[in-house]
């Protein structure tokens, strides 16, 4: 470095006096338009901070003359999207769920909307992939086994009112007695062997014969003589390969001894009818959805308004608070 400034012979420009290993720096003047650009951007910067939120104050920033905010922009965007979807939402609330899949656009919209509803509200228990949690008795929604029915209408009813909750008088309801209160350990063990036999699992045939007797007297009223269950009261089918709480001896012993009481909250009031229907359409399309037993189009033509055209069933019967369970149901 040196301080000696001189006029460079080649260019006629003064040097800055800086030099590094003999390389000198010219003090070339900036173009004047650059200066004006700098002033212009400075002025624009000041104007910008007046128009938009900018200056930090003690409790927040200046609001800006235009009143713009990023939250406001998001809100406006959401409003715009909601407005553009208003027609579809309206159609979704009024459409007959039994024939929803005939309207391809509406069905696609419902499934996509339901995907979001599910992720935000249902995945906490049923899992993001809807595979459920067996240890906690959250059912797998992907398979073809349904406790309370697998048509889109059944699913919507379950979602709307929930299961065994105190908040919705129309909640699906049933309760299996805890057989540990009146059975011996041997009786329970024998029934476990029979239930395993029903499900096609390895079992003790001698004990199962004793268990069959007990099953016929105590369980068949809900689960059926063959153990195929009853969807009207959410009594699970015991003959299939799917076990809500597990098919091993320990889990079955616990189920029979203490009973289970799986609860699902009602979502109708919280989500609104459109979202309930959307999430029902989504769950219905996860691989296990069942078709409505079609009697004729005229039967299905009416709108599926809650508590209106839905066929009356046991779980729909209003229940007095504190009333004993309608029917003992085992799982």
């Amino acid at each position: 470095m040196s301080d000696e400034k001189r006029i460079d012979a080649e260019t006629g420009t003064e040097t800055t006096g800086h030099q590094w290993d003999g390389i000198e720096e010219l003090n070339t003047p900036l173009p004047r338009w650059w200066l004006w650009t700098f002033y212009a951007t400075t002025v624009w910067g000041v104007i910008y901070t007046i128009l938009f939120p900018a200056w930090p104050m003690i409790s927040g920033a200046t609001a800006g003359a235009l009143g713009w905010s990023s939250r406001g922009e998001v809100a406006a965007e959401i409003e715009r999207v909601d407005l553009s979807r208003a027609d579809l939402m309206e159609s979704l609330v009024t459409v007959d769920l039994g024939v929803l899949d005939r309207n391809e656009d509406l069905h696609r919209f419902a499934v996509q909307a339901g995907r979001s509803v599910f992720a935000a509200n249902c995945s906490q228990c049923h899992g993001a992939g809807a595979a459920g949690v067996q240890a906690a008795g959250y059912p797998n929604l992907l398979d073809d086994d349904w406790l309370w029915g697998g048509t889109i209408r059944d699913i919507a009813t379950t979602v709307r009112h929930g299961i065994r909750n105190e908040d919705d008088p129309d909640a699906r309801w049933s309760q299996m007695p805890a057989f540990g209160e009146f059975w011996t350990d041997d009786e329970i063990a024998a029934t476990v062997e029979h239930v395993r036999a029903l499900g096609g699992l390895e079992h003790d045939p001698d004990l199962a014969v004793v268990g069959a007797e007990l099953f016929y007297d105590n369980c068949a009223s809900c689960h059926g003589d063959e153990g195929t269950g009853d969807r009207e009261i959410g009594a699970p089918n015991l003959t299939d390969a799917i076990w809500l709480y597990g098919g091993d001896r320990e889990a079955l012993d616990r189920t029979i001894r203490h009973a289970r009481f799986g609860v699902m909250p009602p979502w109708g009031a919280r989500l609104g009818e459109a979202q309930v229907r959307a999430v029902a359409a989504y769950v219905h399309g996860l691989g296990g959805g069942e078709e409505e037993a079609m009697i004729g189009d005229e039967v299905e033509a009416g709108p599926d308004v809650p508590d209106a055209s839905f066929p009356a069933s046991a779980e729909e019967t209003p229940r007095e608070a504190g009333e004993p369970p309608v029917a003992p149901v085992a799982d």
């Binding site: 899992g127 992939g129 595979a131 992907l142 398979d143 086994d145």
Partner: peptide, 18 residues
Amino acid sequence: PVRNPTFVTLSDGSVRNA
């Protein structure tokens, strides 16, 4: 392949992948 879950057991004991 859908990996959540990797497979689903159906009521007849068959196994389904999505």
